[in-house]
């Protein structure tokens, strides 16, 4: 079994000291290790943002795709080779700003992919502009008087889009996050995990301190994760108390089950293809 330390590359980690991304990086490696996955079968597809640099730091097959496009790329990987464990790392910017349609679509299609959103409620890499998950009132470089749009609640959007595993965790609780990621990888179908990720440099509101005071675990709150109605109700909770844990889980036909894929597409026998019958139809 691969140890978390073996999943390290030689690249210098470039996150700001104290960034929530360290916690996510640690939990991700823990989850791969604890599940005993073969490292060569893990593909991490990230978007572009601070979180995207993670592609340099985990010694598995990694992709830093385009801003807003990790989801369709990951869907393609999974269709080509269903044996792979495909994990999407995406910012709140590239989940809900650039390419929001992919988010809704992948939930509806129920691809067997794990989708981790590094939700720092800010654009980190571009140095601190407003994100779609921010409150109307949030003042940033790009929104000096706030903005008319109300915030997107990732968990809620995932629920109404048809996700079959919806969870939230916190970069400040590596054990909890590890367990949630493990559950997500094991889930058959799309698993969406919204991770509260403090950006210590640009988001002075949603800090570790802010979350430490507010988060509580659904696992201990007698929440029924089979009920969509209860999940939606919990999704609205954001204030003095912020729930983390699994909001919702169901088993529904997955993308590859619909296409009745038994073998990975890439192992089909191309040398046997014979189109002469179809050519006859053209005569």
């Amino acid at each position: 079994m691969v140890k978390p330390a073996d999943l390290k590359t030689d690249e210098v980690i470039t996150f700001c000291p104290g960034c929530g991304n360290y916690g996510i990086l640690a939990a991700l490696k823990n989850a791969v290790s604890e599940l005993g996955l073969r490292e060569e079968d893990v593909v991490i597809v990230s978007g572009v943002g601070c979180h995207g640099h993670m592609a340099n730091f985990v010694r598995v097959y990694t992709v830093q795709s385009l801003h807003g496009r990790p989801v369709p790329f990951a869907m393609g990987v999974k269709i080509a080779n269903k044996k792979l464990h495909v994990i999407v790392l995406s910012g709140d910017g590239d989940s809900f700003g650039e390419g929001l349609n992919h988010f809704i679509n992948v939930m509806r299609g129920n691809s067997n992919i794990t989708y981790i959103c590094h939700d720092n409620i800010i654009y980190g890499l571009t140095t601190g502009q407003r994100s779609p998950t921010a409150d109307k009132s949030m003042i940033t470089k790009s929104t000096p008087f706030g903005a008319p749009e109300i915030r997107i609640i990732p968990v809620k959007l995932a629920l109404v889009s048809g996700a079959t595993f919806v969870a939230r965790s916190y970069a400040g609780d590596i054990r909890h996050l590890t367990d949630i990621i493990k559950q997500g990888i094991k889930h058959e179908g799309i698993s969406f995990i919204d991770v509260l990720q403090p950006c210590v440099t640009f988001n002075k509101i949603n800090t570790f301190d802010f979350y430490n005071k507010r988060v509580y675990k659904l696992e201990k709150a007698r929440h029924n994760k089979k009920s969509l109605a209860s999940a939606l109700k919990k999704a609205e909770e954001w204030g003095d108390k912020i729930p983390i844990g699994v909001f919702y889980q169901e088993r529904r036909e997955t993308f590859d089950e619909f296409f009745k894929q038994k073998q990975p597409l890439i192992s089909r026998n191309r040398s046997k293809i014979d189109v002469s019958k179809t050519l006859e139809e053209h005569k």
Binding site: P72, F73, V77, A80, N81, N105, L265, T278
Partner: peptide
């Protein structure tokens, strides 16, 4: 009949990124 994958997808941006992902993973896309 020929056991390959074909699909009408959400939009062109999704199409091309899916195809690129599939090719990266070894499919002739």
């Amino acid at each position: 009949e020929y056991k390959f994958f074909a699909k009408h997808v959400c939009d062109e941006i999704e199409a091309v990124n899916m195809a690129l992902g599939a090719s990266y993973a070894g499919a002739r896309a």
